[in-house]
Nucleic acid binder design. Sequence first.
DNA 1: TAGGCCATCTGGTCCT
DNA 2: AGGACCAGATGGCCTA
Length: 349
Amino acid sequence: MTRSVLEEQMSVESDEQQELCSPAERERSAEGVTGGGGEEDEDCLHHLEEEEEEDEEEEEEEEDGESKPKRRGPKKKKMTKARLQRFKVRRMKANARERNRMHGLNDALESLRKVVPCYSKTQKLSKIETLRLAKNYIWALSEILRSGKAPDLMSFVQALCKGLSQPTTNLVAGCLQLNPRTFLPEQTPDLPAHLPPVGASSYPGHFPYQSPGLTAGLPSPPYGTMDPSHIFHQVKGQPYGPLEPFFDGVLVSDGPAFDPPLSPPLSINGNFSSSFKHEAVAATDYDKSFSFSVHYGGGGAGGHPAIYGSGGSNPRCGDLQVDGLMGFDGHSHHERLMNAQLNAIFHDS
DNA sequence: TAGGCCATCTGGTCCT
DNA sequence: AGGACCAGATGGCCTA
């Protein structure tokens, strides 16, 4: 009897749940991907019913005093059918609210994903990575506004990627479409260290990259590492060992300290329509002294086609996996506006 | 198969 | 009392 009422309530709740779910979650639910759900509710009910029976038999057991150790503390209020019923209903309502609350949280997170640099419908950032990237992004933007100077691309990307996992780092790098050549000071000695105009084929800058994690002994792995090997691979003997702080020349002693364990990213929209070079391209002298590659989740040898760049001639993204990636200008008007402002900053500095 | 990520349930705490 | 928030536990899915 009680059971049938509860089942009815649960089915009602189930309907509510469908309404509360976001489309993606509804889809998941429909596929039976969700967690415990109603099944657990049933388990809970079963458990409660057992408890109820225990309560009812409590007095008898006390007389026995053998089968179960006596409970300490205040005697539990007897779970009458009515109480049990109320408890169950309350619990189900609480569950529904909690689900709803979490859906709201996820919606907010999804909104955040969309305004953070690298948004990909196909390759969603995890929650934690989204928060890290957002934090880095905010930090990087703040630095730009505060200093009025444009960071060099590499520092910028590194700031964005600080503390991010390797896959996310690759995603960001892919989104920004880094051009490894820009990291070669010798080749671009006269080029200004700011970002290229929209549509520019590459970003000329220098290579000030330095891993704070290595130089300052900051905590890193698995997150927070800015080890160059995280983003690119330097050939043995290449001269860029020492690392410099992010935003070369921007960070000052009294400036806001960048939280070591976290990451800073800034996605300057698809501006970095620079070129990704295939590693397979015939090696130039530059290639011999410096190579760049971003490994995606254990990419590299035999792994995923990592993001490569090593001074080749292919101006396209090559094997970079950027499916579904949206540049910053792939979003709302607001974002485009913001992007334009960023470009202005970079061009003016 | 292990580990990462996620959705959900649950009980506790705080607040209204 | 009831709602919001939180953290721990659990189990499913996915990928390397």
